[in-house]
């Protein structure tokens, strides 16, 4: 039984078909890549998976539950975590607070009466878990820095950390390397591999950097103009003529 099973997801934007019956499966602990040229519909697909967009047809089943019509926060609680291509951080919050907020959300122990009685401060347990994730992502030194003080690359790691705090079964990474230079990208890829090794989280990665994808994903899906044009083991897909034509822009 697949962890994520998206079937025939179709999304139109006033006449333009952004996704045309796209189906995708991700199994537990698997690392899957989703590639395609700009405008192919990768982010749209992510948004449909997470519920930020409602597809016109198709279904999304996750961990055995049909989430097609569920609101975003329910999908998150069911175990879908994600990062954003254009970063979505909480302005004015420290790095640690980003993680603590996510932790509190996961635990669901926030009660209004606790707020009123001033009993809602992060517990030692919550802090320990946040610190463990900070350690994993090598963010300990900036734990108490405001998010605005971080570089782009470390900002992306905060997004990963925030998503990890919700203990996702599947992590959707939306172009984590965009805006990073080669060295930063390599460091990020190494960190993500370490995360996956430690937590065993399944990852669905949207990425332009072919080396990143090659080193990270076991299996690939290729999207072009809203349709899946190829799928299979990474090396095989990257070697296929059709993919090279459509995506890598090579003449064969």
């Amino acid at each position: 039984m697949a962890l994520l099973d998206a079937v025939d997801v179709t999304k139109r934007f006033s006449g333009i078909t952004a996704l045309d019956a796209v189906s995708m499966r991700v199994d537990d602990g698997e690392s899957v890549g989703l590639i395609g040229p700009n405008g192919a519909g990768k982010t749209t697909f992510f948004n449909c998976l997470l519920g930020l967009l409602r597809p016109e047809s198709g279904s999304v089943t996750f961990a055995g539950r049909n989430l097609t019509r569920a609101p975003v926060y329910r999908r998150a609680r069911a175990g879908l975590g994600r990062t954003f291509q254009r970063m979505e951080l909480f302005a004015g919050m420290t790095v640690r607070d980003h993680l603590l907020v996510a932790e509190r959300s996961r635990l669901g122990t926030g009660r209004f009466w606790k707020d009123v009685l001033n009993l809602a401060a992060p517990s030692a347990d919550e802090r320990a878990r946040a610190d463990a994730t900070l350690e994993l992502l090598a963010l300990r030194d900036v734990a108490d820095a405001p998010i605005e003080a971080l570089s782009l690359g470390r900002g992306r790691l905060v997004e990963v950390g925030r998503a990890l705090m919700t203990e996702p079964k599947l992590l959707l990474l939306d172009e984590p390397s965009s805006g990073l230079d080669a060295a930063e990208t390599a460091a990020l890829a190494a960190t993500l591999r370490a995360v996956q090794a430690e937590r065993g989280t399944a990852v669905l990665l949207v990425e332009h950097d072919v080396e990143f994808v090659r080193s990270f994903s076991d299996r690939l899906y290729v999207l072009d103009f809203g349709t899946l044009i190829a799928t299979g083991p990474t090396a095989e897909v990257l070697g296929s003529d059709e993919v090279r034509r459509a995506y890598l822009g090579e003449t064969v």
């Binding site: 997470l50 930020l52 609101p71 975003v72 926060y73 998150a76 609680r77 879908l80 975590g81 994600r82 954003f84 979505e88 951080l89 909480f90 907020v101 996510a102 959300s105 996961r106 669901g108 997004e159 925030r162 998503a163 705090m165 919700t166």
Partner: peptide, 9 residues
Amino acid sequence: TASRSIGIN
């Protein structure tokens, strides 16, 4: 968006 994505309603 990010708040919803970590399960906040």
